[in-house]
Design a protein around this nucleic acid. Structure first.
Lengths: 159, 159
DNA sequence: GTTGAAACAATGTGGCG
DNA sequence: CGCCACATTGTTTCAAC
């Protein structure tokens, strides 16, 4: 995935900052903000998609209004840390409709699974069916998510 | 924030699913997918933004290619669970450039702070300056994030 | 919700520094 | 080589139904 490319310049980072704050902003608006012609700006965005710097975009939603009244983070420890076991866990869990995201961690817990579900019955079912039912799973701990906030600004990294 | 509105219908959910998978998809493409005229589709998207169902959109980025070679989840316990303490913690942390997102949790840990930083020196500095330096913070534990994956599909909730 | 027209944005080409 | 201007194509948006 390391598509050996030239480093991003400051204009690239400015473009990413605009898109990070609002992924639906128009190319023309970005171009104005960063001081480029629309065609040049679009060229850079396309290039960053090709390079894999930009990997996609997501909507932020109020899951509560959609019926997802419970959100939880499930900490999971597995008995076996082979690459196959780890990859399979992620690949099995990510497509499940309840799953929003999956972290693979170093440290005490191996995974953190962020889920959104209807209600506590649905949460319990999910944990039994998708997590504790797996033979490699050793330890599970579920914490309710009261609030989840995403920064609107791109992290800045020193060159 | 509960803008008492009519429930979302199935077409609304289909629109959200399209935008969730790719927030930059064009309105015309959504309209085609869900079988609506572009004008009606746009009207629904606007309505859902007004209602607060759609709260924003973000780019997904490869932080590594941006120089964010270390990502971590910092678990934090605070000594005081008043609303003011909790709100202030989130409000102080979210604007920091290293912070990607903040979970407020029930359970043993009160917060989980997801950060992306340059290197381990930067991580150590962040933890000292932004977390352990706070008087209300009781307990801190940092876990490296080896991998983070976001589901491309919207959770489905039973009506 | 739809249609259709006008305004606007995205995108490809060629030329300039 | 990257940027810009311009022309073409496609998209958004609004009014009328």
């Amino acid at each position: 995935m390391k598509h050996h490319t030239k480093a991003l310049d400051n204009t690239d980072l400015n473009i990413l900052a605009e898109l990070y704050a609002d992924a639906r902003v128009s190319n023309k608006a970005i171009a104005e903000k960063v001081g480029l012609a629309p065609s040049s700006c679009l060229e850079r965005v396309k290039r960053m998609q090709q390079n894999g710097v930009i990997t996609g975009s997501r909507l932020l939603l109020d899951f509560n209004q959609l019926g997802g009244h419970i959100q939880a983070l499930i900490s999971v420890r597995v008995s076996d840390h082979n690459r196959e076991t780890v990859d399979k866990f992620q690949q099995d869990l990510l497509p499940l409709t309840e799953v929003v995201s999956v972290f693979h961690l170093g440290g005490e817990n191996d995974f953190l699974v962020y889920v959104a579900v209807n209600d506590s019955i649905h949460l319990r079912d999910f944990v039994f069916n998708a997590i504790t039912g797996r033979p490699e799973v050793n330890h599970v701990e579920t914490a309710l998510v009261y609030d989840f906030q995403v920064s609107p600004t791109l992290p800045v990294f020193k060159s």
